[in-house]
Amino acid sequence: MSPSTNRIDTRFAQLQAEGKRAFVAYVAAGDPDLERTVDVVLALERAGADIVELGLPFSDPLADGVVNQLAADRALRAGATTAGVLEMIRKLREQSQIPLVLFTYLNPVYTYGYEQFHHDAAAAGADGILVLDLPPEEASENPEIRPTAELRHIQLIAPTSPVERIKTIAGLAEGFVYYVSREGVTGAQTEVAGGIAEQVALIKSATKVPVCVGFGISSPEQAAAVAGMSDGVVVGSAIVKLVGKHGADADLPHRIEAFVKPLVQAVKAV
């Protein structure tokens, strides 16, 4: 896929032209089940999300907090498989062109076949991938896990990443950089961490791709504050929690839309 046709790149180009920040939403694919994930993503799109990160569930998500871990458990118990998630994306693409990033751990991808997974995910309609436990060093040292051009490889940078490392990772970035604004696992926090503006500036000195900030954002005030310092805001656990609570309710999509809309508006007002 050439840069001009990748949905992530296209969306960021539009946002840049409009002078707007991106709203990125994360949900676990298959929670409460794969069929309803389609409804959840469509609800996120109606609420104004620009990009959706879909968690491909893994049994041992050690970089995630308890909220996302429970969501992955629910998805696996409800029968989510790698092939099932790709099939769900294929169905979703009949109704939506929202950019999709697969957010996962290496073992499910490795077991499927790294290259084959990239190929099949791109064919199903995914645009990017973030493998949480695959640092760039390993990608270059293991021939069987070389990145392919079919998906944008989203890189993650942490508050503990040293300056030299930030530059190296940012230099490899495709699509956007995901800056983790807090030390810790994924999960809602009550305060926004400090030093974000400085770190974003440092990352931007090393890459042309946009920088989105996440980990722990749950209120419109936090979203607006972070949007003011970056190119976009990622909200995950707060939405996942809502899915966990109302997964069995018929009005789940409406609840999601109602919760996400004010967050999007706060980001778009910046």
Binding site: P135, E137, E138, E141, L156, A158, T160, S161, I169
Partner: peptide, 20 residues
């Protein structure tokens, strides 16, 4: 130096742990 025993081992961890 990166912890590989042939094709095994390595540092397959989230970026949040790399510095440590």
């Amino acid at each position: 130096q990166h912890g590989h025993f042939g094709r095994y081992g390595g540092m397959f961890v989230p970026e949040t742990l790399m510095a440590a």
